[in-house]
């Protein structure tokens, strides 16, 4: 198994996946999200920066509580009540954090769509699948016959068998995999340019998971869709994403092209994640488990938040917080010793 082939050579990656060429669709620059908690607020997303170029899948990876969902929710504009945002969020050049609520609502579904881990919570139990998928089209004033055809097309594209019969089903009549497919059809109905997928396969069995990821990847390629794929599972992100953003305790630890980052991490946390993935071909996940538990934004250690668990921590790490900085072409890392790590 060669690790030297570049994604561009393969069928899976028609996109150069080089953030430096062309204007990004989405620019996340120093994004901050503060959530209200008893007696104050907690910064759950802290100066997060990354781009999503057109037709590119960016994977957002990190353990639970690292701020992945809040980052995605900030992009789509669905943060909990009382949340405060800061930094910059630009959609095709447009300032999203300062856009009107009406404008943000219009963006949702039409330009940016989202799918979740639990489609049942997102789908309406009292309406047929066909009705829900067609909703956005009907609201746009498309004629009924048109809507029906388009819904059939969308269900078929999402891999739902016998779409003409299935469009009359209710969500509870679908299996978990079919529900996620219905959710994908619904998300595609507004012809978005960016799809946010938050743990879309986490609740599914592995064979179903593989099929849904294959579907997402083929839709992404065929339609030139951009995708932000959020997952705690490195296997999922590695499988689908051209670029990867690794989060730890609300901050970006490292980002860059998936292949390069996973083959040669520039941050000790990324390296630990890669090493602890339980693989079916290698039996190494237990060799050097990290000590301790993931830091949370509410309980962030001083200096580098990772230092209590980091095998490479030095005195400096306990007091000085490393800022993300370029460490190789297209790559950023927030570790005082990133260059040394890359040199190994």
């Amino acid at each position: 198994m060669s690790r030297t082939r570049t994604p561009a050579e393969g069928a899976a990656s028609p996109v150069p996946a080089d953030a430096t060429t062309g204007d990004p669709l989405l620019e996340v620059d120093g994004l901050v999200v503060d959530l209200p908690v008893a007696g104050g607020s907690v910064r759950v997303v802290d100066r997060v920066t990354f781009d999503i170029p057109p037709a590119t899948t960016v994977g957002l990876i990190g353990e639970s509580g690292s701020g992945k969902t809040m980052t995605a929710n900030a992009v789509i504009g669905l943060l909990p009540n009382g949340a405060e945002t800061g930094g910059e969020l630009h959609w095709q050049g447009e300032d999203l954090l300062r856009a009107s609520p009406a404008r943000r609502r219009r963006l949702r579904g039409h330009e940016i769509a989202m799918i979740f881990q639990d489609p049942l919570a997102a789908l309406n139990p009292t309406q047929t699948i066909g009705r829900q998928v067609g909703e956005i089209l009907r609201r746009a004033g498309r004629p009924r016959a048109d809507v029906r055809l388009r819904v059939l097309e969308l269900l078929e594209r999402a891999g739902i068998p016998e779409p003409a019969a299935r469009m009359r089903s209710y969500p509870h009549e679908f299996s978990g995999g079919l529900r996620q497919r219905a959710m994908i059809a619904l998300a595609l109905a507004g012809s978005p340019a960016l799809l946010l997928a938050d743990e879309p396969t986490t609740a599914l069995d592995v064979t179903v998971q593989a099929r849904i990821l294959r579907l997402l990847r083929s839709i992404q390629q065929d339609q030139g869709l951009a995708m932000l794929l959020v997952s705690h599972d490195l296997r999922v992100v590695a499988h689908v994403a051209h670029q990867v953003v690794v989060m730890y305790a609300g901050r970006v630890a490292e980002r860059g092209p998936t292949t390069a980052v996973l083959a040669r991490p520039a941050h000790p946390y990324t390296r630990a994640l890669v090493e602890s993935v339980p693989a079916v071909r290698t039996r190494t996940a237990l060799a050097h488990p990290l000590p301790g538990t993931p830091a949370t934004p509410a309980n962030r250690p001083p200096g580098c938040a990772f230092h209590p668990r980091c095998p490479l921590a030095q005195d400096q790490c306990r007091t000085e917080e490393p800022e993300p900085r370029p460490v190789a072409p297209g790559r950023w890392a927030a570790c005082h010793f990133a260059e040394e790590l890359l040199q190994r």
Binding site: R3, G10, S13, R235, H239, V280
Partner: peptide, 17 residues
């Protein structure tokens, strides 16, 4: 097969599909 399809090492070599 499904687990392998999702394995990191395979994905690093994402040319296979």
């Amino acid at each position: 097969d499904a687990a392998l399809e999702l394995s990191t090492t395979d994905a690093q070599d994402r040319s296979g599909n």
